[in-house]
Simulated scan of single mutants.
Amino acid sequence: MTRPLIDLRTTPHGGRSLFAIQPIARGTVIFACEVPFGHVIYKDYRREVCAQCFAYAASTSRNIGDPRTWSIRSCRATAETVWFCTDECKVIWESGVIGPLIADVNALLGKGKIATRSKSARDGYDPILPNGPPAQITQDCIDQAWVDVEDLVSSRARLSSYCSTMNLEDMELEISRLVASAIVQRYVFDHRLANLAVSSIIPTSDPWAEVLDLQSSELSNVSLRPYILAAHLRVYAFLCHSLPKHLRLYVPTARNILARDTGNAFGIWDGDSRDEMLGWGLWVGASYFNHSCCPNVEKTRVGRAMHFTTSRSVEIGEELCISYIDTNQSITQRKQDLENSWFFTCQCQRCQSEEPDEASPH
């Protein structure tokens, strides 16, 4: 029996994290998270990204006729049309349960009456948060806003009236699709309609329990971006109105996903060049890796899977870290990016060594 290479531990500085429990050579794949619990491909890229393996048409030459789009597609009567890079990917996708169910749900979301709201009007009047964001953001204020939206959605008549004039930005609709895909995943798991791939390194019997174990960034996110509270409430109301009855039972899941999406999600990029971000996803087990500006692990997307490989040799007891940002930036820019997107001040070894000495003259 192969001895495990890594262990999940609680740390005083970053929640739970992964550590080496024996020496690990450079280039060792130490972790693989096979599928995202929830994901979305941006609207502008859906004809260019394979629904099964996320291959990007513009970065390949497979489709000679039009190098920026795929020609193979699935367009069942009840589902949103999706595209594939090969017939093999189409067969894999259609033989599963989750992909077609998500396509069905996305078709329903696409039929919703949505009035496009300009960015300049984002902070304007909306009955879902009539007084706008609270002047002082507290957890109590956020909790009360969610109580109020629960009251709204408890009446189908009031919910239908609100949604008939709902103003959703394009990004709010993308967020709705991400949350809906996660709801489908949970529904499928609960009804044992398919076997979800789970990590062999961090075993789990319930992927939803893993989602709840992730750190919530709700208060930090709303404090930094007060407008996001109304956006999340609109997403919630929209899903309550649009999803079929058997999935509406899971919509309360939405708040937990939205609270953990920021700070735990990974971008779906076009490849090693990372020139274009095609969407994003929540690979739950992958979120156990903490950040360092001098990481010893590299992440690579292989189809739908996220693989993690040591970038140097690692000793027993070392924490295994990836980089959340571009580490070629200055310490000032790195800290700003981490504080704005992940809500923490980096204290890694590199940042401590590069921190200016306040006592030294300017």
Rank of each mutant, 00 (worst) to 15 (best):
Leu193Lys: 08
Ala180Glu: 13
Gln185Leu: 07
Leu229Pro: 02
Leu229Arg: 01
Val198Ala: 12
Leu224Gly: 01
Ile202Trp: 11
Ser176Gly: 12
Glu169Trp: 09
Ile201Lys: 10
Val211Tyr: 02
Leu219Cys: 03
Glu174Asn: 12
Phe189Asp: 06
Val184Cys: 05
Val222Ser: 02
Leu219Trp: 00
Pro207Tyr: 01
Val222Cys: 04
Glu174Tyr: 04
Glu174Arg: 09
Tyr227Ala: 06
Ser216Arg: 03
Met171Pro: 03
His191Phe: 00
Ser217Ile: 01
Ile175Tyr: 12
Val222Ala: 03
Leu229Gly: 02
Ser200Gly: 09
Glu172His: 04
Arg192Ile: 01
Tyr187Val: 04
Leu196Phe: 07
Leu219Lys: 01
Tyr187Glu: 08
Val188Trp: 02
Ser220His: 02
Leu196Asn: 09
Ala197Leu: 09
Ser217Glu: 11
Leu229His: 00
Arg177Ser: 05
Arg186Ser: 02
Leu224Tyr: 00
Pro203His: 12
Phe189Pro: 01
Ile201His: 12
Leu168Cys: 15
Ala194His: 13
Asn195Cys: 06
Ser199Ala: 13
Pro207Asp: 06
Ala194Tyr: 09
Val222Gln: 03
Glu210His: 04
Thr204Phe: 02
Ser223Thr: 03
Ile228Pro: 00
Leu178Tyr: 13
Leu229Val: 01
Ser205Asn: 11
His191Arg: 07
Ser216Thr: 01
Ala197Ser: 13
Val188Phe: 04
Ala230Glu: 08
Ala180His: 12
Ser220Phe: 00
Glu218Thr: 05
Gln215Glu: 12
Met166Gln: 11
Ser176Ala: 14
Ser200Asn: 14
Val198Arg: 14
